[in-house]
Amino acid sequence: MQIRMAGVTHIGRRRKNNQDSLFFDEGHGIGVVADGIGGRKGGEIASTLVVDGIRQAFLGSEVIRHEEVTPFLASAVDTVNANVFGFGRNNPEYAGLGSTMECIFFSGDMVYVAHVGDSRTYLYDDGQLFQLTLDHNVENFVDRGLVHRDSLQDPGIRGAALVKAVGLTLRCELDICRIKRRPGQIYLSCSDGLTSMLDDRQVAALLATHSGNLQKAAGVLLDAANDAGGRDNITVLLARVEGR
């Protein structure tokens, strides 16, 4: 089965720079979306370090068999995390920089998604949209009992505040999930600049209309997010499993 990919990243309408980064390699079935945090320049640097780090790790590895994908992703994110964390430590003006990360990787008949933060990956299958990843934010972690609200340093902290991001701490825990791929499926990885502007049904409706042309679909999603206000940087990565 062949994979088709398309992606776009845009500054949005309110921000002064684009702190999102994007990389994808259709031939090898890998794509990364990162959304930097930690000030104007810091966020940009962090997301670039994440995307470049994963790309380097991938290019530097030999053939990755399906049973090696999880250790590869874990190890690559470890290294990237150390680089971002180290950068913040060595450059006090960028202290606190970090980045979300969505890495989608096609191997054999499986799709692997490595996820940190509140960027998201969705599956669009047979006209229906499913969010695969869990936003690593306070609200979700409290809801699932992973964090007790009492234990928060600031109990009034916003529910959307990030609990995990690459480079924030010495060790970065990530979610790695896998799903069996099927022809016709479309995987969407995106920064929260898209999902904070459009709800899932709007995204699903746009994908339903434009799923035949991935590049166009990515552009349409981006335009729709901008039309809705474009409050944040917007990055969209689409990957379709061909063969139907």
């Binding site: 599956l123 299958d125 047979d126 006209g127 229906q128 499913f130 695969l132 869990l134 979610d175 790695i176 999930c177 896998r178 799903i179 069996k180």
Partner: peptide, 19 residues
């Protein structure tokens, strides 16, 4: 119309479906 589909998730790690 299309049948409504569901996706199953275990331990935030593996998925079954959509079914």
């Amino acid at each position: 119309g299309r049948a409504k589909l569901y996706l199953i998730r275990r331990d935030l790690e593996t998925f079954t479906g959509p079914v």
